[in-house]
Design a protein around this nucleic acid. Structure first.
Lengths: 72, 72
DNA sequence: TCATCAGTTATCAAATATGATAACTAAGGT
DNA sequence: ACCTTAGTTATCATATTTGATAACTGATGA
């Protein structure tokens, strides 16, 4: 799988789970001490997240990192 | 879990699996088109890997990213 | 002793993530 | 018409990863 595809898929997974949990980007961002704009960027799949960023997102969504990476 | 601990754990996991597969850092590095020095750095747990780097390592080790993140 | 292999550490330039701010669109409700 | 909420996009400075090179240690074998 090409890198960009991976990033898109992980981003989509984050968005899906966030919506499942009934959270807005803003709410999720707040838990992470992010700006909503950065949350949007994160879900756009244009950014190559670092491990600790993934970890923080997973915690805020109350899922494991593996669930966020469960792509294909 | 604090960030540094997470990074240490993931790094340790990578090392463990690499050794299980009977590979040297050099061999693994070769598969990734890395320098062995960077492989060492990666396993030192001092670096906050990006998603695509984790992905490449997982592929070279023939495991899923989840296996590398299966910490704690 | 000498050479090789495995790994570590430091350093550098280049690329990129991160955090912040701002301006914008679009939808809903009052 | 106005306001709020949700999300997007662009831009900036700063920090950090990445890739490369080099010098080093320690162990093992000829």
């Amino acid at each position: 799988m090409k890198d960009e595809i991976l990033l898109k898929k992980v981003a989509a997974r984050i968005r899906t789970i966030r919506i499942e949990k009934g959270m807005s980007q803003q709410e999720l961002a707040a838990e992470l001490d992010y700006e909503k704009s950065n949350m949007s960027r994160l879900e756009s799949g244009t950014v190559n997240l670092k491990l600790t960023t993934l970890y923080k997102v997973a915690q805020a969504l109350e899922v494991s990192m593996s669930e966020l990476l469960d792509v294909e």
